[in-house]
Design a protein around this nucleic acid. Structure first.
Length: 809
RNA sequence: GCGGAUAUGGCGGAAUUGGCAGACGCGCUAGACUUAGGAUCUAGUGGGAGACCGUGGGGGUUCAAGUCCCUUUAUCCGCACCA
């Protein structure tokens, strides 16, 4: 078959018939299947896109044939760092390169032959989209969910620019190799932590991969404990967060994070030099390294002490980088006897180690980090750890020195970026009025085109006078715009709400319509988004719900992660490794159906794996076989012979078995087994075809027709062509998906395995509803089995219906 | 480091969730048809001559373990300014 020709032919037909367009009249039967939209890269579609979109489109087509009104939109996450880096390198404007890339990708996406509803396309870099991203920002600001505070960025002193973590390689700038330092800037945050508890609880009801839910759970990182107030000798107070208040009597020092504001204030003159040097050193380290338990613990005594509120003991205050200012209170108590890190630290700096918990049935080695019985803690001795945690905090609560506290590892979402290619933050800074949100009627705050990208210490927008200078909406005086843009994750945190109402120019979406269209029924995308994008989207949904725009709690009811197609060498595909496999040559040589079908068959969808084209020819052969059968079927006249003999029964069994299994497998994204079942059905049809003499042609034709309908979602162009060959006029995707006739699957006799003492000893045919008595009868009637059992006593007979008989002698 | 996952023939991968390990396909072997075959069709294909042995290694639970438990090794993914 000329694949190129039929691709064009059927794509034109589908386009004309608007096969892919969602019909809002049928919203009651909607099935919203969403694939994560892609970043418009210069190099067309890669295999990863194909792997994500091809099989998922087959799933969507399957759902359509099952009677759903499917909605499968596509768009582009078009803002972001790469386009800007490319601009710095080549001088080509991000808008120009992005627009060009989008045109390119649209083209190849169309050639894939997927049922994307292009009438709902969105591009996040266009005004009619980012206008509403800005609207979202303002709504969050109004609701008190957006706020400003100081936060560190990676700063390259060489390029005089802010760097993404990705651009920092082993502590140095990827461009100029200068040592990257931390620098504090006032930045915008979204208060995602306000939803921490709900984001955690909500996971329970989601049809998501367990591992993803677990990852989010750990990312949110709930821990219950207490905040305990220590008082420095200076009188300054600070709190530490701990989950182990039961060890409070064992505190031999406290640690402040290097960024903690009290560090500067409390450091003694004598220690000043050492502390400052230490802080400077810390600024060069990233958090992953800082948290590493394998890394040597370091710290510096600041020359000041603090009082432990429970026993009035003065303990030294240290500054150490293993404490993060961003988590908890940025200060911890050091209990060397019952914490691994504290133990190492105390040993190194020769701090006292006092045991305050004893274990049950264990030796005396320290550190002892499990729960146990409290000791050396006057007033609390003999309590269990759990009792003491409550009692000790309760005791301190009386004097206002502590409170019970639940902490989350989750941090607020930093959304400002000191970059050009993103949605401008719709805020105006006025000397008189302070932070003033841009009035809704003035949206969008347009991103100017004519900017200077060269990194020179200021972000591109800050240098653009026409953009920056503006009148204050409140007082009318001179003011300036916020020079930062929004994290692209903000754009993607709500795009699923825009798709169903993509052309709405009055509002981001029509709430009434959106409440019918959402949640997304199936969301398909990479597992790398487990913690960030997927969490941000959940947060935004909940926030908009609380503002009254949405009436559902979760955006994505069901989630699937496709695996990753690696290079042939088993490594992740990358330009630098030179192991990138482009799909185009395969599409050219074999056709898009063959590539899609191969991707579906050759990999476990959620696992992926190294690319190899060894089996792709087999797919062509498989389709060729079907085409040959189709030619025969189409040209064979119906015969008068209409008996159902064992050959017909076998074929009907194979067909109905295939319906049942393929249906189930398609629904659960088990595409490789679905295709395997289709191959089995083709084998069964070929076998029937090869039978000489009289056979029931109408059964044959029906079964063949079923095959094509089952195949259609997986090889859409090819199946349409065969469908037409069989004399059908309408697109096969208007057909109803075949239904399994359970009666055809009933067999009078089934084969079961027989074991003697759990060892395989043979197979026998038994009736469907086997009783123990029958089983014995049949076994002893079998010569081989009977001789093995001769003279032995049967102790136990285990019958697993339809599977196995195990005779214990 | 923390968090998450994976490991099954020469290869990609199945296995109804504790019940015949290796479905389906690739590759390979033999044969048929052919002037020819990188086409098509048929048969075979985990190892071992065999008793038997086999799901990364070691231990355990069970009538029964790829599947459950303990332990160990290797590989991959994420870690908050890449998207």
């Amino acid at each position: 078959m000329d694949m190129k020709k039929i691709e064009k032919k059927w794509q034109a037909v589908w386009e004309k018939e608007k096969l892919a367009n969602f019909n809002p009249k049928n919203v009651g039967k909607k099935y919203y299947c969403l694939e994560m939209f892609s970043y418009p890269s210069a190099a067309k579609l890669h295999l990863g896109h194909w792997y994500n979109y091809g099989p998922t489109d087959s799933f969507v087509r399957y759902k359509k044939m099952k009677g759903f009104e499917v909605f499968q939109p596509m768009g582009f996450d078009a803002f972001g760092l790469p386009a800007e880096n490319y601009a710095i390198k080549t001088g080509i404007h991000p808008k120009d390169s992005t627009d060009k890339n989008i045109v390119n990708m649209e083209q190849t996406l169309r050639e894939m032959g997927a049922m994307f509803d292009w009438s709902a396309e969105i591009k996040t870099c266009e005004e009619d989209y980012y206008k509403w991203t800005q609207w979202l920002f303002l709504k969050l600001y109004e609701k008190g969910l957006a706020y400003r505070k100081e936060a560190p960025v990676n700063w390259c002193p060489g390029c005089k620019t802010v760097l993404a973590n990705e651009q920092v390689i082993n502590g140095v700038c990827e461009r100029c190799s200068s040592t990257v330092v931390k620098k504090d800037l006032t930045q915008w945050f979204f208060k995602i932590t306000e939803y921490a508890e709900e984001l955690l609880q909500g996971l329970n009801g989601l049809d998501w991969p367990e591992k993803t839910k677990l990852m989010q759970k750990n990312w949110i990182g709930k821990s219950t404990g207490g905040e305990i107030e220590f008082t420095a000798e200076s009188g300054d107070k600070f709190k530490v967060f701990t989950t182990r208040a039961d060890t409070l009597f064992g505190v031999s020092y406290v640690v402040l994070a290097p960024e903690h504001p009290l560090v500067k204030k409390l450091t003694s003159a004598k220690q000043k030099k050492a502390v400052e040097a230490y802080i400077e050193e810390t600024a060069k380290t990233n958090e992953i390294d800082r948290l590493s338990t394998a890394r040597e613990k370091t710290g510096v005594y600041i020359g000041h002490k603090a009082i432990n509120p429970i026993n009035g003991k003065a303990v030294p205050i240290y500054v150490a980088d293993y404490v993060l200012y961003s988590y908890g209170t940025g200060a911890v108590m050091g209990v060397p006897s019952h914490d691994d890190r504290d133990f190492v630290f105390a040993t190194k700096y020769d701090l006292p180690i006092t045991r305050v918990i004893k274990g049950v049935n264990c030796d005396d080695t320290l550190p002892f980090t499990d729960d146990g019985i409290v000791m050396n803690s006057p007033g609390f001795d003999g309590m269990t750890s759990e009792e003491a945690r409550k009692a000790i905090i309760n005791e301190l609560v009386k004097t206002g020195k502590a409170e019970h506290k639940t902490n989350f590892r989750l941090r607020d979402w930093l959304v400002s970026r000191q970059r050009y290619w993103g949605a401008p933050i719709p805020v105006i800074h006025c000397d008189k009025c302070g932070v003033v949100p841009v009035p809704y009627s003035d949206l969008p705050v347009k991103l100017p085109y004519d900017v200077e990208f060269a990194p020179d210490g200021e972000s591109p927008l800050a240098k653009h006078q026409g953009f920056m200078n503006v009148k204050c909406p409140i007082c009318g005086g001179d003011a300036h715009r916020d020079p930062d843009t929004l994290d692209t994750f903000v754009c993607s945190s709500w795009y699923y709400l825009r798709y169903p109402d993509a052309k709405n120019s009055k509002e981001p979406f029509n709430p009434e319509h959106i409440n019918k269209m959402l949640p997304v029924d199936k969301y398909v995308g990479g597992a790398e988004h487990a913690c960030m994008h997927l969490l941000y989207a959940r947060f935004i949904t909940k926030a908009l719900r609380d503002m009254g725009y949405l009436n559902f709690d979760e955006p994505f009811k069901s989630l699937v992660h496709q695996g990753i197609i690696l290079g042939p060498d088993g490594m992740r595909m990358s330009k630098s490794k030179g192991n990138i496999i482009a799909p185009d040559p395969y599409v050219q040589e074999y056709g898009s159906d063959v590539l899609r079908l191969y991707l579906m068959f050759g990999f476990s969808y959620t696992e992926g794996g190294p690319w190899s084209d060894a089996g792709i020819k087999a797919i062509t052969k498989f389709l060729d076989r079907i085409e040959r059968l189709a030619t025969k079927v189409a040209s064979t006249p119906n015969s008068k012979y209409n008996a159902i003999t064992s050959a017909e029964k076998d074929l009907l069994y194979a067909t109905n078995y295939a319906i049942k299994q393929v249906d189930k497998d398609m629904d659960s994204f088990s595409f490789n087994t679905a295709v395997a079942r289709l191959m089995e059905l083709v084998n069964a049809l070929s076998k029937f075809d090869a039978i000489e003499g009289e056979k029931n042609i109408s059964v044959y034709k029906d079964c063949f027709k079923t095959l094509i309908m089952l195949l259609a979602p997986c090889a859409p162009h090819f199946s349409e062509e065969i469908w037409e060959m069989l004399g059908n006029r309408n697109s096969i995707f208007y057909s109803k998906y075949p239904e399994c006739d359970e009666n055809a699957l009933v067999k009078d006799e089934i084969e079961v395995a027989v074991q003697i003492n759990s060892k395989m000893r043979g197979k026998i045919m038994v009736p469907n509803d086997l009783t123990e008595e029958q089983a014995k009868e049949i076994i002893f009637a079998n010569q081989k089995l009977a001789s093995e059992l001769e003279g032995k006593q049967i102790k136990k007979l285990i019958i697993v219906p339809k599977r196995i008989i195990n005779i214990i002698i």
